[in-house]
């Protein structure tokens, strides 16, 4: 028996789509960072600081972090519901799954706030 609770998008198709869209956003960010690192050559503090001082890079980084967190939430939900089941964990499964998902959500919210603080904190 599986446990139905706190599904990210409340719809499997929506979860599926969000997982792909966020993957493409994060992949684009990784490729952009790679292109910048390789084209800049000697990465100095001034160049690095200057990159993250631009509004577009701050927005892109925040978007990528948000996409990462949503992607991680759906991924961790998928993994959690695959292994934390009443079939192997009995009556404790529901409580364990709840605590697991609560932990994942808190960590991801912390990451998001931390990232915002890095980008606009000082």
């Amino acid at each position: 028996m599986t446990i139905r609770m706190t599904r990210p998008g409340r719809s499997g198709i929506l979860d599926w789509l969000i997982q792909r869209v966020t993957a493409v956003i994060v992949a684009a960010f990784i490729v952009a960072m790679l292109v910048w690192l390789l084209s800049t050559g000697d990465v100095t503090y001034a160049a690095w600081k200057g990159l993250f001082a631009t509004a577009w890079m701050q927005s892109f980084t925040l978007l990528a972090l948000l996409a990462t967190c949503v992607h991680a939430w759906i991924g961790m939900w998928t993994v959690g519901t695959d292994y934390i089941q009443t079939g192997n964990l009995g009556k404790y499964a529901e409580t364990l799954l709840f605590l697991y998902q609560l932990g994942c959500a808190l960590v991801l919210i912390f990451y998001l706030l931390w990232g915002i603080n890095i980008l606009w904190g000082n």
Binding site: C69, A72, M76, C104, V107, G115, I118
Partner: peptide, 16 residues
């Protein structure tokens, strides 16, 4: 994927 869930912290720390 599970490792990267923890790895985000490393990336944010290095960025900070």
């Amino acid at each position: 994927g599970i490792l990267l869930f923890a790895g985000i912290a490393f990336a944010l720390y290095v960025l900070q």
